[in-house]
Design a protein around this nucleic acid. Sequence first.
RNA 1: GGCGACGUAGCCAAGUGGUAAGGCAGAGCUCUGCAAAAGCUCCAUUCCCCAGUUCGAAUCUGGGCGUCGCCUCCA
Length: 508
Amino acid sequence: MRLFNTRTRSVEPFAPLRDGRVRIYVCGLTPSAEAHIGHARSFLFFDVLRRYLVYLGYRVDLVRNVTDIDDRSIEAARQSGGDWREIVGGYYASFQRSMRRLHVLDPDHEPHATAYVPQILEMIEELVATGHAYVVEDGVYFRVRSFPRYGALSGRNLDELLIGARIAPGEGKDDPLDFALWKFVKPGEPSWPSPWGPGRPGWHIECSAMARELLGEPFDIHGGGYDLIFPHHENEIAQSESLLPAPPMANVWMHGGLLLFDGRKMSKSLGNFEPLSALLDRHEPQAIRLLFLQTGYRKPMNFTEDSIDGATTALRRLLAAYDAFRAVPAGEAEGDPQGLIDEFAPRFFAALDDDVNTSGAMSVLFELAAAQNRVIAGGAASAAAAFMHQAMDLLGISPVQRSAPIEAAATVSSSFQVGGADYVVEAPQDVDAVLSDAAFARLREALDGAVELDGEPKAQAVELVIVARAQAKSAKDFARADRLRDALKAAGIAVTDLKNGASWTVAG
RNA sequence: GGCGACGUAGCCAAGUGGUAAGGCAGAGCUCUGCAAAAGCUCCAUUCCCCAGUUCGAAUCUGGGCGUCGCCUCCA
């Protein structure tokens, strides 16, 4: 596998530093506001990277931190009169839920900065002891000039930086480029005790301290958004490598391209974004996931809500093809299954090998979907289904649509998907009851609860209607069949007839 | 001003020396009780412009134009 390394500005072969273990640190969220879709893109990429590394047989340790104390959350608490912990906790919970809806797997460690104050202080003490940091009236600062390689990651030199740098009022640092490791407490602010006085950590030191604590140094991959290259990652390197006999602190530095909204970067200062959670309420999360997968992770990407519609269509087609493969009974046709699969699978994995080219990988899946008739005729349906399942799993697209053999299995198969979960359907007990008006009313009620994304769908009720409708159809009672379909539609369930049955989805 | 990226069909987008993936939209067709869905076919002689290197360039070099990002909190 090859990865683009910001440190060397080139794509290079990737190998773990030791033991087949890949240790990754991704700079996570500062939950002082609702997460936006740009955060989603970044974390989603590292999720795919991690899934692929696991597929390659590595043992992956992914750390994604939470900056739970910073100026903005303090300010938000001050304005609302609430507690900063509650504010941060609320935004974080919302973010975590959004990540799960997008099928971003939980990190192995999700350290909060405030839980690592001892480690942070220890590191600052080392930096003070070695002359890389100094104490002044408002805090402890890192002396940038003490680290000769400063600027290497972002390709800047100190004199250029100096032009734009300023010392803000109240900052007692020696050099405009120096940055805070520890900020002494101001009235009304949360604080922790330290050898130099109560205060709180500066932004950059937490990542250095937590990476060192949880992963050890050097570790394999350090990631984050493109906008973190400077100054955040530059500062991390300065802090960590000042204490390290042999740099680098991280072997590979990876940065995800930023997401633009209306051609502009989304940022907290511009405030030009909508909460991710709201967007996920309006669109199928997996479609958003697919949309990101169709663009290279390093490219800036202009996000428009309209583009999700196209991705939703594409996703449906992909899952329909998977369904078609699965619907073919095993051993039905003669052919060369392996030959057919070899047309696709190697190209899929080759794309991922090439700096996680998810766009190229996706295109292979679409080609396979388009070739479904040929693949099925060639007897490769089950092999194709297995490959697609594996491939979609790697990309975090859930193929949980599945066939549910029920009473009239010979003529009816139904598949469904709700909130990415898998459901089992029992044999229908009394189809005639479903056909009565009273039963409809009960069904409607049951289904009203079913359309909640993370709610427990009354899948059995839906399946009963599907069966009843199939029976009405085979009896040529189309009026009744339409009535059943309309009932489901009114309950937010869209039914689509297939060759030998029907599929249904929760309509958006 | 300094540094960096990008510019491929109506839209999105892969491709970094060998003759333009894929998705959406659009057109025609097949299937179909109806709805849909799905499938098939078509859709860039050409990759912002100009010059150059090469047997050969979207890909390399030089120049130009345009867009965006970083240089301040940011994924």
